[in-house]
Amino acid sequence: MTDTHQPSPLIAMRGVCFNYPGGPPILNDLDFELFRGERVGLVAPNGSGKTTLFHILMGLLKPCAGEVRIFGRPVHREQDFIEVRQRIGMLFQDADDQLFSPTVLEDVAFGPLNLGKSREEAATIARRTLARLGLEGFENRVTFRLSGGEKRLVSLATVLAMEPEVLLLDEPTTGLDDKTRHTLTHLIVAFDLTYVLISHNVPFLAATTDKTYSMEGGRILLDETVHFHEHVHAHRHGQVPHQHE
C-alpha cells in the first residue's frame, strides 16, 4: 500500500541498538530511512558499525533494541527475513565469502534456484546476468581461479541474478585496480536500482551516489553534511599537466 503523495520508506530503522555480548555498543539508537530510487553512500571510520548495519538489515544479526521495518513490514524472525533476502541483495566485502560453488555458472544460478526457479530458468538468468556485466564466456570458469577483479564482478552477478530491488554494497572497490573500479562504477550507475554503498573511496562515492551519510557514535548523521572537497595529492609524473576524473 504506497501512498503516492508521501512514499513510505523501503527500509526504516528506529532506535536500533546493537552490541556483541560483553562488548561496547556498536550501534546506538540508530535511525535510518531509505526510499525508492535513493543512492546513498556511507562513509565512516573502520569499526563504526557500517557492516553491522547491513547485517542487521539482512537478518544476520539481531538488534538488541529498536525497530526495523523493511518494505513497510516489521521484521523480527528468520521467517520475515526470507522474503527480505529475495528483494534485498548484499555484496560482501570479501568475494571469496560469496563465491562458494566450483563454477561461475553454478554460483550465479544458486540464488535463482533458491527462489524456486527450474534448472533451465536459473541457467538462463545466470547467463543473462553475466552478459549484462560483460562476463560472457565465464560460465564454466572455476571460481577460485578468477582474478580479484573478476571475483568481485562475478559476486555482483550472483547478487543481481536474484533481481533485487535494493542493493547493499559493502566496500565494493576494496582491492580493485583502477580499470576494474571504472567498470564497476559504470555498472553500478547503470543499474537504476536503490542502493546503499559503503566505501572509503571518495571519487567512487562521488560518481555513484547522490548523498553521503556518515556514522559516529553508533548513529548515522543524517544531515548530509559530508562534502567532498579537493586537496593536494602526490603521485608520479605529477608535474606533467593532467586531469583527474
Binding site: 544476520l60 526470507i82 529475495q86 541483495g89 560469496q98 533458491n114 527462489l115
Partner: peptide, 24 residues
C-alpha cells in the same frame, strides 16, 4: 570465521538448507 561468513552470504541469497545442483 570464513565458514560463518560463507554461510551468511549463502543465507543472503536465499539458502535454506537445501542445495540444488545444475549438473545434468
Amino acid at each position: 570465521a570464513r565458514a560463518e561468513r560463507v554461510h551468511q552470504a549463502m543465507r543472503c541469497r536465499g539458502f535454506q538448507g537445501r542445495f540444488h545442483t545444475m549438473a545434468q
